[in-house]
Design a protein around this nucleic acid. Structure first.
Length: 292
DNA sequence: TTCCGGCTAT
DNA sequence: ATAGCCGGAA
């Protein structure tokens, strides 16, 4: 159990107090970086994807880490890279193979977008992932955060990015008593306090600190304007979609066979199947459904 | 039963 | 702006 003093040093509060505007000064920034890096030196998390700066490895890990905890990604990442070592291998695989390797991670649309992206990189970019945030963000499945993460972790570029752990750290240090804080406001601080010459290490350190904070107190990210509690999983369309795709990675099935195996009403199955087909995750052909 | 999360479509 | 998308651990 951590003492409050160790996660919010008094010296930081005292220093920050003298700067009413935004709590920032060179001194505050230096101390803040010191706190984050000190924790990192002693508590660095040792992930396989942190050992490599290969853009493909970074990309795959970031896709998996969108909405999925590190504990579940660790095993899957290793297997995925072994099965698809390069963009070429992923691009030339069938989507069914890709989805099989994805099983257990959830949010299967990410697998589809990653597959599309690999084909695009091979065909439009000669197998080389673009090196600018603007180009990266045009690719399927890459949004503001993932584009920044690739720039930081693959290319060590001085970018400004925010995700759940970074958000946690800045809410904790700079918005101790605020609620409904917007990312736009946090980003100003993230930009000003960044160790621009060591983006890769800095963001890894911030994320590790954020994880530690969440283990020590109620999640500070709940005070974000963008925090939302989501609908229950049990009985949801998400659950049924997952079941259907899991079945179809095993074998092609007729509508009736699917209804039997998934055990949901026909009308609901029709609706969800047509949605999955619309999203290009599955196709219906010769009376059977299969992975697209 | 509750908790955790980035991208896309609307 | 907001709703929808997954699965497993605690």
């Amino acid at each position: 159990m951590l003492l409050l003093g160790s996660i919010m040093p008094e010296e930081f509060i005292r220093l920050q107090h003298g700067y009413a505007k935004n709590g920032l000064s060179d001194e505050v920034i230096a101390l803040f970086q010191n706190i984050i890096y000190s924790h990192y030196r002693d508590n660095k998390r040792d992930f396989l994807w942190r050992k490599s700066h290969d853009p493909y490895h970074v990309l795959v890990s970031e896709f998996m880490l969108q909405q999925t905890q590190t504990s579940r990604v660790e095993q899957k990442f290793s297997e995925f890279i072994t099965r698809f070592p390069h963009f070429n291998d992923l691009a030339s695989a069938s989507f069914k193979e890709v989805l099989s390797a994805w099983q257990g991670l959830g949010y299967n649309r990410r697998a589809l977008m990653l597959h599309h992206l690999a084909k695009k990189v091979v065909h439009d970019y000669k197998g080389i992932l673009p090196k600018t945030k603007e180009a990266l963000i045009t690719l399927p499945g890459i949004g503001e955060y993932t584009a920044g993460a690739i720039c930081a972790f693959a290319y060590n570029m001085p970018v400004t990015l925010i995700e759940t752990n970074v958000r946690t750290v800045f809410l904790h240090f700079f918005f101790r008593n605020s609620r409904g804080v917007r990312d736009a406001e946090l980003l100003l601080l993230i930009e000003k306090t960044a160790d621009r010459n060591n983006s890769r290490e800095w963001y890894n350190a911030l994320m590790d600190y954020g994880v530690m904070l969440k283990q020590s107190m109620p999640n500070p990210s709940r005070r974000s304007k963008h925090h939302a509690t989501q609908s229950r999983f049990e009985g949801s369309d998400r659950q049924v979609r997952g079941k259907i795709l899991r079945e179809l990675t095993q074998h092609e099935l007729s509508f009736d066979a699917l209804v039997t195996r998934v055990d949901e009403p026909q009308e609901r199955m029709k609706k969800i199947l047509s949605q999955l087909a619309f999203e290009s995750l599955i196709v219906q052909e010769n009376g059977v459904f299969r992975i697209a």
